[in-house]
Amino acid sequence: MIVVVTGLPRSGTSLMMQMLHAGGFPVLCDDQRPADDSNPAGYFEFEPIRRIDRDQSWLALAEGKAVKVVSPLLRYLPASQDYRLIFMARDLRETLRSQKTMLIRRGIDDGLNDSAMADHFSRHLTEIRQWIRKQDRFTVLDCDYARLVADPASGVDSVCDFLGVPLGRQAMRDVIRPELYRQRSEPEQ
């Protein structure tokens, strides 16, 4: 079994990887991208995923582990494997704000318009979910970031039930720090 933690960039994928790691589930990551202000607890990323469109030779290393693959790259996962996807969902406005903050921290202005990016990502999420549903190789758990932070116990339970392996639930809950949920949207009236 390969567990893929996915979602848009800045939707809580690093937090989920951190939870799995804390709970004792093996994760495939390296130290190429160290913790910073955008992800104080670390990114839990695996450098070769950045080249997933042309090199999937790392896949054998992922067996029995969790690996982070952001949703726009999911289509590059080899069809030869079955995957359990933990799909992180987060309010798109929060996600975009968080992406913007991270770009600023990296000193990058990509010149892309928020409204256009919201349309692109919204369409992408619809299309990728339709695509996933058509593939037999994916089993999916949807995980809402805001709900996870608001109710860690339920979130952790659903992840453990989904994976069907004994994990340190308290340790998983302990890594969820509401103070790091920094781009909250006001609830709509």
């Binding site: 950045r50 080249r51 790259l73 992406q99 990509d110 892309l112 349309d119 692109h120």
Partner: peptide, 17 residues
């Protein structure tokens, strides 16, 4: 255009080369 913009954003955030 959408795919191009998403790729550019992923690149800026460090998710692709």
């Amino acid at each position: 255009q959408s795919e191009q913009d998403v790729r550019q954003r992923l690149k800026g955030l460090g998710y692709i080369e």
